[in-house]
Design a protein around this nucleic acid. Structure first.
Lengths: 199, 199
DNA sequence: CGATTCTTTGAAATACGTTACAAAGAATTA
DNA sequence: TAATTCTTTGTAACGTATTTCAAAGAATCG
């Protein structure tokens, strides 16, 4: 027995570096060198921890979904009412200002997922979780008689998550006609209508 | 004077090949070789027509947006009523079955656009056109008293296009919880609600 | 300190893709 | 047919990114 393994720190470091690198260069332009630089390590060290870069990308994808979901979950859970929770969910679902590296990476990975079962599964899981998050809020609001709707909570939740994704995607695409403010307005207008919330 | 230039045919061939190649391999894995194979040419010939592959990608992007838009435009124009036009727009906006190469490429290019002004402009232009397409149908329906709504036609159109994009994106991502049928249902439900169409 | 194991590095070997280009092939006109 | 120009190909030269690995550095224990 001698020096013990302590790889957790560097692995976390590398996961964040992968997010930064993908966000900055895109999946197309991604190089080992970029990840190494963001991590403050040499290329050799990156290979030491992740001989297969795909494994690192999958871990980074996993981490990004966890962060995105739990962060919102936490904030939503702290709300006193469903009406407030909806507003918080929307605000965090379509972030303001420059998109953070983890969120940016999620959109970079969308098309990649079509060619990788592992990424596709993570995509599906995140979708399901986000739908559940909205669905829970909606049902809470219905129970409290804050909301009144003719549609299933599931259908409304799916539509809301789809709207979030589209507006975030267009932000990542530098679509000049779309801003986070516009996206939030459209999403809130939809929810107000369909949930019978007075404006 | 001798052999005349006749590059149109091969250029079109290469544009289609680029769509197929991007659709099959993604932007990340794209190689000159792939484009050459889909075009039935050698790598040298691809370079002969497009010394810069970026130029080919921009042309392919341009062509994809033209096809996608004009094809819908044509079908929508043939409809007798706004109600029918809405249904046609939705059916063509969220295509059934496996996504065609041109549509698939459009989604591959979304994140790429964030790093290329030329692609970003094409993205913005397609968004604007699609919004206009919906907006025109909506105003036609309002004029004919088929639709009744409290929102601006522009806001509704933006929301509709966003929903299309999101569901198509998730189809491209192999999200197992999303099908084209689901996407159409959600989009139609939204439009029925907001336009006051009886179901 | 000395032995052991983990970590990091840089460089060599390797793999892969693009660019440049000479040469052959094809179409057109005189 | 000969001359001319366009088209296509294959390959050599080149550039760049990944893989491999030996060696040095760092941490821990006896």
């Amino acid at each position: 027995m001698a020096r013990p393994k302590a790889q957790e720190q560097q692995r976390k470091n590398l996961v964040q570096a992968a997010m930064d690198a993908v966000s900055a260069r895109g999946l197309s332009g991604l190089r080992l060198k970029d990840i190494a630089e963001y991590a403050g390590l040499s290329i050799g060290s990156v290979s030491y921890y992740y001989p297969e870069i795909d494994d690192l990308l999958i871990e980074a994808h996993h981490e990004a979904t966890e962060r995105f979901y739990w962060n919102r979950m936490e904030h939503v859970a702290q709300c006193d009412s469903a009406i407030e929770a909806i507003q918080v969910a929307v605000r965090e679902g379509i972030p303001d200002g420059p998109v953070t590296a983890d969120v940016h990476m999620l959109y970079e990975l969308h098309t990649f997922a079509g060619r990788s079962a592992a990424h596709a599964e993570l995509m599906t899981q995140l979708w399901e979780r986000e739908v559940s998050l909205y669905q829970d809020i909606i049902e809470r609001g219905i129970a409290a008689q804050d909301f009144l709707t003719l549609h299933s909570s599931r259908a409304i939740a799916e539509t809301a998550v789809a709207l979030e994704d589209a507006f975030n995607l267009h932000m990542v695409s530098s679509n000049n006609s779309v801003t986070s403010q516009l996206g939030r307005e459209r999403l809130l207008a939809y929810l107000n209508d369909v949930l019978g919330i007075a404006e």
